[in-house]
Design a protein around this nucleic acid. Structure first.
Length: 279
DNA sequence: CAAGAATCCTGTCAGC
DNA sequence: TGCTGACAGGATTCTT
């Protein structure tokens, strides 16, 4: 589920609750998720003070005073559950549990186990193999029409697939690529090499605005949350095309010429778009 | 090399 | 009710 806005929301929730806290106990309930967990994970987390959080693409980095950073990826089905320690009920698929000195319990829950957890020395965060190849942050100053144009030059793949490539830009996923292309009035089927220039000038702000709106709404969620009360994001109600196959898009009020929102499959994944207004 | 398919997993839902 | 197949917010690895 988690794309950049959801990961940002989760990271902010963790920052609010756990910054400055000490991990008093760490428990791994299995040896691996997508990849093996670090051999001495529990030992290296226990007793460590959490000094801060940041996000890079869809990754969360939790920095420790010990000099390590915990690198988290939520994969497709991962979520972070923060609860007061009291009831301490084991949750299904809760693979890693951290308990803090102020009585918070952080659970990493991930049924499909596409997520990952690793440790990296804080000064070398960016050199971690999972972060080293990432493209620019879409909300950062380095992501511009010129930089996107350069990244797409000569690419024959559809723009939809290109934007899902984390080396082109870091943090977009299936939902927000569809939504941003709708906002930019660009067809997801268009070849990426036709974007550089004027169309990149439309696409970059469309991506930034889509992500900013989603973050302001707390992300899109069905059941992912980080607050103790399980508060949900509500951007899913603002989707213009994703999951709306057959509906008229908001730019095409009912009329015979309007074909409605179409769903197609691109490299194995659903794409939603309006064939009349996205070219 | 680049692009698409297969793959890792489990849960949910539509249809029979 | 129970079974089956399709599909799901990701990203690497394997094939063309």
């Amino acid at each position: 589920m988690p794309e950049l806005p959801e990961v940002e929301t989760v990271m902010r929730g963790l920052r609010q609750r756990l910054e400055g806290r000490v991990i008093v106990r760490a428990t791994a309930h299995r040896p691996d998720l997508r990849w093996p967990l670090p051999e001495n994970l529990q030992h290296r987390l226990t007793g460590a003070r959490i000094t801060g959080f940041r996000r890079r693409g869809k990754y969360i980095l939790m920095r420790l005073a010990s000099g390590d950073s915990v690198l988290l990826h939520l994969g497709m089905s991962g979520r972070i559950v923060l609860t007061p320690l009291r009831p301490n009920m084991p949750t299904p698929h809760e693979h890693l549990v951290l308990e803090t000195d102020e009585g918070w319990r952080l659970g990493f829950v991930d049924p499909r186990r596409f997520g990952s957890v690793d440790l990296v020395p804080t000064p070398e965060e960016e050199k971690h193999r999972l972060l080293a190849g990432l493209g620019p942050e879409p909300l950062g100053p380095a992501f511009t029409p010129a930089s996107l144009s350069a990244a797409l030059a000569g690419k024959r793949t559809p723009i939809k697939a290109a934007l899902l490539d984390q080396k082109v830009v870091a943090g977009l996923g299936n939902i927000y690529v569809c939504e941003a292309l709708f906002r930019a009035r660009l067809s997801p089927l268009r070849s990426a090499h036709t974007i550089p220039g004027i169309r990149a000038g439309r696409l970059v702000p469309a991506i930034k605005e889509t992500l900013q709106d989603a973050i302001a709404a707390g992300g899109s969620s069905l059941r992912d949350y980080v607050q103790p009360d399980g508060e949900l994001g509500y951007f899913q109600h603002a989707w213009k095309v994703y999951g709306r196959e057959g509906e008229p898009c908001e730019r095409c009020p009912r009329r015979p010429a309007c074909p409605g929102i179409r769903r197609v499959t691109q490299s194995g994944r659903s794409t939603f778009y309006c064939p009349r207004t996205q070219r």
